[in-house]
């Protein structure tokens, strides 16, 4: 039996249909066609399904779609504005922080939250913060470099008087 779920996804208020057993990630992918969020495991280990729920990074494979009722979801599709990459996306691009790209949306979403909480993380803090995301391609080194670079860019843009870029 499906239920109607009212929620806000990437700034847009909408209604979706889902069975109670539907995982948030499957609703995003199958019902809302937001296929940027991926499923890489079934034990909440890999983080490919990471989205922001009310601004907090969560694994959308471990949240029931019905639990998102009334909440705000941000997916990878909601980051770039008017064709301009979010500074985190831009940094992953510049630092070659992705290869096959499958884990990338999850890493980007986790990083967006991390840098909001900690604008200038050390390398150790970054590696610890990314524990919930698995990448099999990059060996993480360029991901760490990308996070540092994004942090620096975001700090720059947050200086008084500087334009605020991205979400």
């Amino acid at each position: 039996m499906t239920q109607t779920i009212t929620l806000n996804v990437n700034g847009q208020a909408l209604k979706a249909q889902a069975e109670p057993r539907t995982l948030l990630v499957h609703m995003l992918r199958d019902e809302l066609n937001l296929t940027g969020t991926q499923v890489g495991c079934d034990t909440s280990q890999c983080g490919a399904c990471t989205v922001l729920l009310d601004g907090r990074a969560v694994k959308s494979c471990s949240v029931l779609a019905v639990q998102a009722e009334g909440h705000k979801i941000t997916t990878i599709e909601g980051l770039a504005r008017d064709g301009t990459l979010h500074p985190v996306q831009q940094a992953f691009w510049e630092k070659h922080g992705l290869q096959c790209g499958f884990c990338t949306p999850g890493f980007v979403m986790t990083t967006v939250e991390l840098l909001r909480d900690n604008p200038d993380p050390t390398e150790d803090e970054i590696r610890h913060a990314l524990e919930g995301n698995v990448c099999r391609c990059t060996g993480y080194q360029n991901i760490v470099a990308a996070v540092r670079s994004a942090a620096s860019a975001l700090r720059g843009s947050r200086r008084p008087g500087a334009a605020v870029s991205g979400g």
């Binding site: 940027g36 990878i76 691009w93 949306p105």
Partner: peptide, 21 residues
């Protein structure tokens, strides 16, 4: 140089097999 495949992958607009509907 930066990779040309990245913009689509970074914005969640790549097409992996399970994305095909």
């Amino acid at each position: 140089i930066k990779r040309r495949e990245d913009p689509r992958l970074l914005t969640g607009r790549g097409t992996y097999t399970d994305d095909v509907k």
